[in-house]
Design a protein around this nucleic acid. Structure first.
Lengths: 349, 349
DNA sequence: GCTCCCGTTGATACCGGTTACATTAACCGG
DNA sequence: CCGGTTAATGTAACCGGTATCAACGGGAGC
């Protein structure tokens, strides 16, 4: 078996500086680059015998087409981005999972970026927007003007759990009526004095939950607090809140803006001899895995579905769909566990 | 203020088909593309007055340099990849977090890919390798030959929690001595008959944990089981194992390969009236958030650090470090909670 | 035997940046 | 007044693919 260009192969093996390009393959196979490209793309305008020669050359040179060259020529990245405030917490991973799964199936890579409240977040997101065909943006990671700028550039954007921006699709979960379900359920337990833990300024979701909570408490004819007990999003924040709450006189129940807060709160309370749910009931939001083991009553959100939808929306836009922006709202579900108080008939479990 | 090229702007605004390129900017500013490029890169070989004109043109045309063009010319992607078996579970998110954080700081985007046991995983990973400057591969996601192939192509690879491959760096956590700590601790509780739950074939980590477990049990002079009780990685798998274990006569303790298994097992046991730790003790691995609330004794691994290290290793390789492959082993930590049995002196908490 | 057509293929202009090298002009000392 | 620097800029060749369009060879139709 002769090997017309064995030397090239050898050279490459010792110094893999210069990578092998489509032109090397063309030369090796004795055809033009156009033909190699056609063979690569599976075009039917190439003679079987030629294709075979090309394939042999590709094999011999161990050629892999450069994604960069290809993307530049095709003017598409074949990649989507997703932006998060923070990837920690059990919550976001699910969204990414749903997103990545769909994107992968559609042949797109996924670029992730978590902003961590860095002041350079806007810049980073703009940069990311230049590397993708479409971008999903979660929560309050980036200013509205930046989103608008990206939309203006022609990059499709879908917002997740975030206030709408002109020209961008969005997906979010239902909060107001879920808050109402929570309150209504708590009322059946006989709880009266209700507090809300979480900072509405932090996120649209929390703002809606707080609003829904207040409205529902009002509607139930109970005394609604004027203010939420403000706190961050982490277990520590919940633990700290326990101190404030005990100082101010414990309510019957604390509705928390997310599970981590609720869990931190419960733990801190119990450390101080306050029993949950006997002395005070607690509810959360998200239904993270730990909530199940802690017996936390909470609101389940279809996070994975949210990610998947975002990916599909982007795909549609990238594929040329230019209809009016869509705004999906996913339904949530109340998950009742021990922490909101046991009904007599449930007490056996 | 006159506007030599206002029409271009207008045209662009109505039809954002053709994006504005560096040549448009050059024309608008009355300079060459080289000068624009230099101005963009902040070269000091451009006259302040010229730079100003260029900046004005960039502003006027709302020019954003194409990352693709730039990457092609610079022959670097400015992006790293990370490959996972599955992004679900509370475990991987932490690794990604550490990885992304460091990569972002180093100016690299992060591409994620989760293989989900798809048969096309090898292909997907190879494709990904063509889009990045470096790749982190977690666990048993892809065959050794594929890793070797990527290394051969000259793309730096770091393996995480996976058997080593020639030419690739690796990071993993210590398993054998951690298993020994677990067993030794269990012995102090007076436990004798020990079982191991998890499938050593599934992952290198589990294989090491099983081996370490056996050795430690042996060393303690206790009867070591010949076989692990095989199971997957999820809570369901743990729950299913509960049935088998009860059928075979309960041991004193079940050492599980990860927390999800342990949690599923504990829950299923308690549902059947088997008390943990009184009737049987259970330990896990990973220290996920839920473990804390379930009171699960487990082994904590520095997942975030693992991701961060991987990112730094890749950075070094990409920057030209061609020293011998490194193989870091991170230390783990036994976290004792209720599930392994209460010592008298701990009983008050 | 001579068009015409079609299946293949090649040459080359892109895609949008970077950068080596050439060029120009101003400023220097002798 | 002149050769030699040096700062600032332009020209054009890359990077590695895709795709258009022209060209070519051979069989069908007349």
């Amino acid at each position: 078996m002769d090997h017309p260009d064995g030397e090239t192969v050898k050279r490459r093996r010792t110094s893999n500086r210069a990578s092998v390009t489509i032109r090397d393959v063309a030369r090796h196979a004795g055809v033009s680059v156009a033909t190699v490209s056609r063979a690569l793309r599976g075009s039917d305008l190439v003679h079987p015998a030629t294709r075979e020669r090309v394939d042999a050359a590709i094999e011999a040179l161990r050629f892999t087409p450069s994604q960069l060259g290809r993307s530049l020529a095709e003017r598409r990245h074949a990649a989507n981005g997703i932006v998060f405030p923070d990837l920690s917490g059990p919550f976001y991973a699910e969204v990414v999972l749903g997103y990545e799964e769909v994107a992968a199936r559609l042949g797109r890579s996924v670029l992730i970026l978590s902003t961590h409240n860095r002041e350079s977040a806007d810049e980073m997101v703009l940069d990311l927007a230049g590397r993708v065909d479409g971008l999903a943006v979660f929560g309050r990671t980036v200013h509205d003007v930046v989103v608008a700028e990206i939309v203006e550039r022609g990059v499709p954007v879908v917002l997740m759990a975030r206030t709408e921006v002109r020209g961008a699709d969005s997906v979010r979960t239902e909060n107001v009526s879920a808050a109402q379900s929570v309150v209504e359920h708590l009322v059946t337990h006989g709880h009266r004095r209700m507090a809300f833990l979480g900072d509405p300024v932090d996120s649209t979701d929390v703002a809606e939950r707080w609003a829904g909570f207040r409205a529902a408490v009002d509607r139930a004819g109970l005394p609604a607090p004027d203010q939420p007990v403000t706190a961050g999003f982490k277990e520590d924040d919940g633990a700290r809140a326990a101190v404030d709450l005990r100082a101010g006189g414990l309510p019957d129940v604390v509705v928390c803006a997310n599970d981590e807060l609720a869990l931190g709160l419960m733990e801190a309370l119990e450390d101080h001899g306050v029993r949950v749910p006997d002395d005070v009931a607690v509810t959360g939001w998200d239904d993270v895995m730990a909530a199940r083991y802690a017996g936390l009553t909470t609101v389940r959100q279809p996070m994975r579905d949210m990610g998947a939808r975002a990916a599909r929306m982007l795909d549609a836009r990238i594929s040329g769909d230019s209809s009016e922006p869509r705004h999906d709202v996913l339904t949530t579900q109340l998950v009742v566990r021990r922490s909101c108080g046991l009904h007599p008939k449930e007490a056996h479990r």
